[in-house]
Simulated assay, not measured.
Amino acid sequence: MAEGRAPGQGWRGTEEGWIAAAYDMLVEGGVEAVKIQPLARRLGLSRTSFYWHFADREALLAALVRRWQEKNTGNLVQQTELPAATINAALLNLIDCWITPELFDSPLDRAMRDWARTDAALRAAFAEADAARIAAIRAMFLRHGYGEEEADVRASAVYLTQVGYIDLETAETLPARLRRAPTYVEIFTGRAATQAELSDFLARHAGRAG
Score class of each variant (00 low, 15 high):
Ala139Gln: 02
Asp119Arg: 12
Asp200Trp: 07
Leu26Gln: 04
Thr100Glu: 12
Val65Phe: 03
Leu178Ser: 06
Thr48Gln: 13
Leu92Tyr: 06
Asp56His: 02
Leu108Cys: 09
Arg113Ala: 14
Gln195Asn: 06
Ala120His: 13
Leu142His: 01
Leu94Val: 15
Glu58Asp: 10
Leu61Asn: 03
Cys97Asp: 12
Glu128Cys: 09
Ala20Ser: 11
Met25Tyr: 05
Tyr184His: 05
Pro175Cys: 12
Glu16Gln: 12
Ala129Pro: 00
Pro83Gly: 12
Ala206Met: 10
Ile137Leu: 10
Thr80Gln: 03
Glu16Val: 09
Arg66Val: 11
Ala203Asn: 09
Asn93Leu: 06
Ile137Trp: 04
Asp109Trp: 10
Ile187Thr: 08
Ile134Asp: 00
Cys97Thr: 12
Leu103Asp: 04
Gly17Leu: 05
Asn75Val: 06
Leu122Pro: 00
Asn93Cys: 11
Leu26Pro: 03
Arg57Lys: 12
Arg5Gly: 09
Ala139Gly: 08
Pro175Ala: 10
Gly164Lys: 15
Thr161Lys: 14
Ala55Met: 07
Pro83Lys: 15
Thr86Ser: 14
Ala131Gln: 13
Ala21Ser: 10
Arg12Trp: 07
Trp68Arg: 04
Val27Ser: 03
Glu172Trp: 14
Gln78Ser: 12
Glu150Phe: 03
Val34Phe: 01
Gly44Trp: 10
Glu32Gly: 07
Ala59Thr: 11
Trp115His: 08
Phe50Lys: 11
Ile134Tyr: 00
Gly4Val: 06
Thr183Val: 10
Leu178Pro: 02
Leu61Ser: 03
Gln69Lys: 10
Glu186Phe: 01
Glu197His: 02
Gly10Met: 09
Ala2Asp: 14
Ile19Asn: 08
Glu172Phe: 15
Gly44Val: 05
Ile87His: 05
Trp52Val: 12
Thr170Cys: 05
Arg180Cys: 09
Ala90Leu: 01
Arg138Thr: 00
Glu81Gly: 06
Gly74His: 04
Tyr165Ala: 15
Ile87Cys: 08
Asp96Leu: 07
Ala2His: 14
Glu16Phe: 06
Gly210Asn: 13
Val27Gly: 01
Glu102Asn: 11
Ala193Leu: 02
